[in-house]
Structures are given as C-alpha cells and as structure tokens.
C-alpha cells in the first residue's frame, strides 16, 4: 500500500486518500468565448500518459484538502505532491531528481 505525502498532513497511507482525476484541466466555463469542441475536449479528453501523470488527490480521511501530485503510471510511485493552486512542477527537473 502506497504512502502518499499530503502537502498539509505529511506522509499517510493510501487508504486515507481519494483519487480526483487529472490535474491542471481548465474548467470549461465561458459560454460565449469557448467553441464547443474546446468545451468537449476539456470535459472528456484526458492525456492518459505512460509515465509521469499530473493528477488530483484528496486527503478524504484526513484534512480533506484536494492537492496535486505527479505519479509515474508505470511504477505507480509518486514523484511529488503539491498544494492546489501551485504551478505545475518542472518535469525535466523531476525526471533528473528521479534518476538520482
């Protein structure tokens, strides 16, 4: 069972968390400005990468906070976690860190 590092509470076992889908997906608001295809893409299309994945988690049985994480979908292991609203971490730097 994975240990996930909640940015608020620290490392906690996986069962305390709930997955929340891909991170950094812009909310499809704005009736006039967005065309239908863009709205559909934001609603339904996800990157589903093999490798590093930016995703949302919630510490559902802890502080209740949603946060973002980078997880390697091949190894299942988390590379890093960070608070919601913080910018996307630098993937190249993460990969270098991981190799170390």
């Amino acid at each position: 069972m994975l240990i996930i590092n909640c940015p608020i509470c620290g490392p906690r076992p996986e069962i305390e968390f709930r997955y929340g889908g891909e991170a950094h997906v812009a909310r499809p608001a704005g009736t006039e400005t967005l065309d239908d295809q863009t709205v559909a893409d934001r609603l339904y299309m996800r990157t589903n990468p093999k490798g590093l994945h930016f995703e949302r988690w919630r510490h559902a049985h802890g502080c209740g906070k949603y946060f973002n994480a980078v997880r390697d979908t091949v190894s299942d292991f988390f590379v890093t976690t960070y608070k919601a609203g913080e910018p996307k971490p630098d993937v190249a730097a993460l990969l270098k860190d991981q190799a170390r």
Partner: peptide
Amino acid sequence: AHMEDYLQTE
C-alpha cells in the same frame, strides 16, 4: 466532496 472540490480548487 463536490462542493469542497470547487471551493478549494476553482
């Protein structure tokens, strides 16, 4: 959870 999600993130 849905409300919390929007309140915290959007």
